[in-house]
Design a protein around this nucleic acid. Sequence first.
DNA 1: GTCTATAACCGGATAGAC
DNA 2: GTCTATCCGGTTATAGAC
Lengths: 230, 230
Amino acid sequence: MEETGLALSKTTRGAQTRALILETALELFKERGYEQTTMRAIAEKAGVALGNAYYYFKSKEHLIQAFYLRMHDELVAAARPILDRETDLRERLLQVMRATVATMEPYHQFSAVLFKTAADPASPLNPFSPESYEARQQSIVLFDEVVAGSNSRLPKDLRAEMGYLLWLYHMGIVLFWIHDQSPGSARTYRLVDRTGEIVVRLIKLAGHPLMRPLRKSALLMISDLKEDMQ
Amino acid sequence: MEETGLALSKTTRGAQTRALILETALELFKERGYEQTTMRAIAEKAGVALGNAYYYFKSKEHLIQAFYLRMHDELVAAARPILDRETDLRERLLQVMRATVATMEPYHQFSAVLFKTAADPASPLNPFSPESYEARQQSIVLFDEVVAGSNSRLPKDLRAEMGYLLWLYHMGIVLFWIHDQSPGSARTYRLVDRTGEIVVRLIKLAGHPLMRPLRKSALLMISDLKEDMQ
DNA sequence: GTCTATAACCGGATAGAC
DNA sequence: GTCTATCCGGTTATAGAC
């Protein structure tokens, strides 16, 4: 209580230094790219010692992790109003996906590095890793809501997996987007529209009696995929 | 002609040194992992100067590229006898995929590094990059043969894309395998069996009149995917 | 063109003093 | 929490030998 008056508490000051380093890093990353930004440059521009930067971020890659968490929050926030507003499944999915791309857009070049790091199975940034559980779960819940809040009906067994399935689908779109060099990520937006169309069609088809064996096979496979992923 | 008797030609000797360095590197990578293997250690064990290692491989990552090309050749070689022997589509696909996993198996931990590098859109190792065109095309042709040599019939429009589609499918399996820590990659083999089943089912379904609109949508999307990929 | 030897540069990471 | 000094390894440079 007493430190509030004169100075910020140690924890707060620590958090501020941390934030300062992170902001500076993100700035420099945007300005000249990840590889070209040295830890020394970050420390210098932030006005702290090199060792201090490492005190707050165990490695250069951990700066990416912090960035990732922030982007994830922005993503969830961008999806919220859409899910509160729309009721048609196609619209819900399309708009959430478009919002995802739009949110990531400013970090396009930088995301390639994020992705490269994330591709390492040993990395905590890997979207399939235990360390990513929290963020992954949030995304899955969000995509589950895309279906839950819509006026579409679909088979119960499939319904249960839709959050995970759409999350997987969204990962594929992100993968494409990272490789997409078209202006304004135009190709990715087009792909979102095309695949959104297909997803909705597939969902409608899935209830057809003719599809039962295939659906059962697919669900079995999905349970294999998820095994050990908690 | 004259140098054949006494000594190996210059080119041959160079190739031998190159091979020696590569073998040594692969050995050390297997033994203690990629990160833990220093270029100095590779040069020392190979009995060459550090500079010489860099003379043949522009960077440490280029050693991975060389490894990748070798694995690719092994993959193609492993598939050949299967394609010459089997006629049933399911068997052709399943056995080629199992052979793929079996071929990669010895390099499991090492492949994670390969994959991490390959995930960078700017990397020549990226499977979607222009530099990978040759290897990618070979793979696609191979998967096209899986269908071509089988006794299955499928719609012409879909038929034309099957090589690419199965290659994409195979990339997904590889992605799963990289994350698979189960003994002997048991989970990946199970996934191959399950997904193989599904692929064959899908192919059979694809010809159904009810499927025409979905198939057309999907093919349109695929042409988007391939655009700019040569 | 192939190779050696050696030193140096650079930047990520760590140790330990304050 | 913050700093300085140092390590380590990928990479480059140089100068010369076969």
